[in-house]
Amino acid sequence: MNNLIEFFKKNFHYFLFAILLILSIIMMGKSMSYSKYKFARICQNTVGPIQKSWSEMIHRFSLGQENDLLTQQNVALMREHKNMFIYKNDTVISMMSKTDSLHPRSMRLYDYTYAHVIYKTTDQAFNYLIIDKGSEDGISRDMAVTCPRGVVGVISDVSDHFSSIIPILHPDSRISAIVAPINQVGTVVWEGPNPQVAYLENIPQHLEINIGDSVLTSGFSNIFPKGLLIGTVKEVSVGQNASFLTIKVKLATNFNKLNTVYLIENLHKAEIDSLKANFKNE
């Protein structure tokens, strides 16, 4: 008997090894039928929360990539928005050459793409933005620039790989706008140093404008599609020029946080402009 105990003591580690190995093999066999295995579920419950918070942290590294994918998806969706098309439900003769497969009775008027802002100023008298796409990417002058929050501005100059934008925050910028519920047409201009406030001009005094009304693009300039948000009415007062109201507009776009912008091209701008040329007033 003593000998047996002695033998067991001496070779204890062999027995332990055998036990541990058998244990792990049992675990292996059971983890094949994973869902039934209680021990696996216990492990999952203890380790799961740690793994979740860790993977959330790791996830942040790929956010930029994911953002690009979302931007592309957004562009694809916005191309199908109804203000991108001219509808011709009642034309007798189908005159359009370019028909869109999704909307057989419509003609595409606007097209979207996107770019990233690489340089911008917001605190000067003449602000401008530079984006990372140029004429080789199909950017041309007078394309409209928007961002997810609202309107940004208009492309002014194009080089091979870069373009400059005149934003709303520029004294030369004039954007044709309407005030939402009454659809009165005016012009959004920027004067002051504040990058969040612009003015809406040419609204006659007799009209009732409420604080909080949306200011949208009118679509008459052939640059912006109809109905994009520019901002909301912040303050209404009677100006020195007695026939018009002075309306302060809080811009929807936060220019300080601008990164990704969408570019909108009017595919038939030249055609419309050639018609307009006959009515040159000045």
Binding site: L20, I25, M28, S31, C43, T46, Q51
Partner: peptide, 11 residues
């Protein structure tokens, strides 16, 4: 426990 391969690394 972290890789859900119970038993493999253990063995």
């Amino acid at each position: 426990m972290f890789t859900h391969t119970l038993g493999f690394n253990t063995a």
